[in-house]
Design a protein around this nucleic acid. Structure first.
Lengths: 221, 221
DNA sequence: CCGGACAATTCACATAAGTTTGCTTTGGCC
DNA sequence: GGCCAAAGCAAACTTATGTGAATTGTCCGG
């Protein structure tokens, strides 16, 4: 009864698809580490327009901001069945810096996710539909690869074309058009919850445009 | 010679329009607090496409991430003549929590700017050109008002229509079209580096769409 | 007071992407 | 194994926004 709770095994929780990991303005005294499945943080308008702001993949901390703010700001929904580990703040603070789930590590992961938003803003503002989708596919591929979830250029891809649409800010119909083209050109193959990357280099050429190396006086084209 | 440098008067620096406050990958051991003028953090493509990621207004810390990362990631350029105060890390760390420029305060300001990106992502992804511009004008109005820089519904507005375009992700020509309309409808008047808000309520109705109050299963329209 | 550069404006036209609708396929579940 | 809802797909049509290019306005410095 008097054992150190900060060392006790952490609680695992599961969510079904479309279930909420968090609702707006909900109080939170823990952080989730996704073990399995995908989740998304989003904003939704009464007229139905939805924009996904953050994607959480296996291995991601969801949502580290809770550490600093004590509550969720935006809803988070499970895109698939999700298994996650609950990490109470006390537990995180008790970890030594080099340990897993230590404060620094969690904050570091948080910064990485936040830095990524710069890229998303750029994408939404200045890239064409094709570029946005290629960029997203590259991002997912590399994030999954970093977690050893890509084998032989194949990885799970649980996003529906509606999900894609709400990430890259275009219509579902247009997502379909673009994916058809990419498939036709032999770049990627999305089929049955799986993605097969056939030509990663080409995909990167289309989606990961190089930033201007030398700073010039910035002006619109 | 042996006085406490963390209490010495901080250095003030000035930049002319189009001058860089930071370049990509530059090492930084200080944070700037903008005293006067506007600056922008952006990404630029070789083909000329530019997207502004963050706007820094008087009173903002620019760029707090430097505190945690030790270097800039994206270039920052002065949109006007800028006067800023240099706050070395050592100086910030020496401040007590309740003091100005203390670590908590700076980090807090950082979080506010980062949280704002969620709104920008939504805007770029799911709002029409008119909505985006109205939203931006509302944001600027309220940020300036918070710093007591709005008098009688009038405030400085140093952004060119090219700048607007690179913030809300549309073409300069279209910015012009939309602003004409807004002026014609008596909502706002942009003229000669000044903005006059004639109908703030209407502007908010157009730009600050309410988030969906009750979480539903999110789906594209 | 003038010249030059930058900013705003306008117009005609091009096009990427949205909308609507319906059909087909897939896949989870009883 | 078959049913049903969800997801994928397709075609026709509409539209918001982009492009290119020329004109006008404004302002700062010499």
């Amino acid at each position: 009864m008097t054992q150190d709770m900060t060392r006790a095994p952490s609680q695992v929780c599961t969510y079904r698809r479309h279930e909420f990991l968090a609702r707006a303005d909900e109080r939170k005294d823990y952080v989730l580490r996704i073990e399995e499945g995908w989740a998304a943080q989003y904003r939704l308008l009464p007229d139905g327009r939805r924009q996904i702001i953050t994607l959480f993949l296996p291995g991601d901390y969801c949502e580290p901001q809770w550490l600093l703010q004590g509550r969720a700001t935006l809803p988070i929904v499970a895109l698939t069945r999700v298994r996650a580990r609950m990490l109470p703040h006390s537990r995180i603070q008790a970890r030594a810096p080099h340990e897993e789930d230590s404060m620094i590590r969690v904050l570091d992961a948080m910064l990485a996710l936040l830095r990524n938003r710069e890229k998303w803003i750029f994408n939404l503002g200045r890239m064409t539909a094709t570029e946005r989708l290629c960029n997203l596919l590259c991002e997912l591929h590399s994030r999954l690869a970093a977690r050893n979830r890509v084998v032989q250029d194949r990885c799970a891809m649980p996003l529906t074309q509606y999900d894609f649409a709400d990430i890259v800010g275009i219509s579902p119909v247009h997502v379909n058009r673009v994916l058809q083209t990419l498939r036709g050109e032999g770049l990627v193959d999305l089929k049955g919850r799986w993605m097969q990357v056939r030509d990663l280099a080409a995909l990167k050429r289309l989606g990961e445009v190089p930033l201007d190396p030398e700073p010039r006086v910035p002006r619109a084209a």
